[in-house]
Design a protein around this nucleic acid. Structure first.
Lengths: 209, 209
DNA sequence: GCGCGCATCCACCGATCGGTGGATTCCGGG
DNA sequence: CCCGGAATCCACCGATCGGTGGATGCGCGC
């Protein structure tokens, strides 16, 4: 073990996962596993005591989950980087972790050499995203969050050109009652009470142009 | 008369005005009056033949008015500058002349020395505006042309926030019938048929923000 | 004086809107 | 399985809108 090995802390509530990861990194001279935690609180305590270069952090753990632990580490102001290693790539899992300060996000199905490259990159402070997670985030950028559904936006555009509910219905091959329902949903989402105000807010929020 | 005197052509349908201007410039060695025209067509013909540095152009002349003559001169591609010298400073007179290519616009009540400085500036290609005309143009820039009257704009703003005709009436201390009249005028001017479309066009044209 | 634009106002009436209180089906996530 | 969101649909009714065809008075420019 050399002086420049990357010090790694493993945080996962499953002993088998910890064993597997420890075995993987211990067999490589570039890394040194300095500790293991079974929950987020233990991970924070060990990181504070040991100051590893990288924490491999699961998200779903008892006592303190991974996102909270990431926040805690950030509050401590340590140089430690957090690489999330988890099963889930849904936006509801990814975004909170990234917002909390994770340097990277990998899925547990990543091959060993990819995982090691990721740890090295994280130690250098480089962002690391699994391809699936990267794809999700890129899609998010291409599709800015709109409060309205695609259909609601269609309806808003048509009323902005002066279409009556009947016109819009004919145009979209739906009933007038459906148009009205969409319109009322638009009003609720934009917090307005009539079509003129809906159009105004639509322009002000960049939904219409 | 030196080699570098500014060559001036005088175009005015009134002989007295032409005499007065000729007398003014002939007495000054900086200028040389090379010709006089009694209407726009004659002004164009003489300018083409003599290529003066500056034409002093009246706007209201028989046979061909000043604006048309300015356009003709511009089409000829001569280096001649046109300084409009006229009685009127209304926008309906000023704008067409400036659009046609006039380098300057002075009123006939300008003092002689101001007129001579203006001719020198025009010969150098500098824009020259009488203070009154300048003020009008500056006001125009500050108040971009809106198709709607001030009151109509007020009404449009209020319906964009979702106000009913009744709300708008209460807000502006007028009757609902008056609000309706304004709204119908807005529809006509913006070429729309309902309030939602009026708001949309209002945003698209920068009337609302 | 005339014409135009602006601001103000009226009554009537058919068309449309907004609200209400439902309903069903499908899909995705927990 | 349950829940929530999206898309679709209904009937009824009071409120509001838009159109129509007027009106007056003022100020401004020609």
């Amino acid at each position: 073990m050399t002086e420049h090995a990357i010090r790694v802390l493993i945080a996962d509530d499953h002993p088998i996962v910890r064993d597997g990861l420890r075995g993987m990194f211990t067999g490589d001279a570039r890394f040194e596993v300095v500790g293991e935690a079974a929950d987020g609180a233990e991970a924070v305590a060990l990181a504070r005591a040991l100051e590893p270069a990288v924490v491999l952090m699961d998200l779903r753990m008892p006592r303190m989950d991974g996102v909270t632990a990431i926040k805690r580490l950030a509050e401590l102001g340590l140089a430690t980087r957090v690489l999330v290693l988890t099963t889930y790539d849904t936006e509801s899992e990814v975004l909170p972790a990234i917002e909390a300060g994770a340097t990277g996000y990998l899925l547990k199905d990543a091959p060993g050499d990819e995982l090691m490259r990721a740890v090295e990159a994280a130690a250098r402070g480089e962002a690391v995203l699994s391809p699936a997670v990267a794809m999700r985030l890129m899609g998010r950028v291409r599709r800015p969050e709109s409060p309205l559904s695609a259909r609601e936006l269609e309806v808003l555009r048509l009323i902005a050109t002066g279409g009556t509910n009947r016109d819009v219905a004919a145009r979209l091959f739906i009933s007038e009652a459906t148009v009205k329902t969409h319109i009322l949903h638009i009003y609720t989402k934009l917090d307005v009470n009539d079509r003129a105000a809906a159009v105004a807010v639509g322009f002000q929020r960049g939904l219409l142009d």
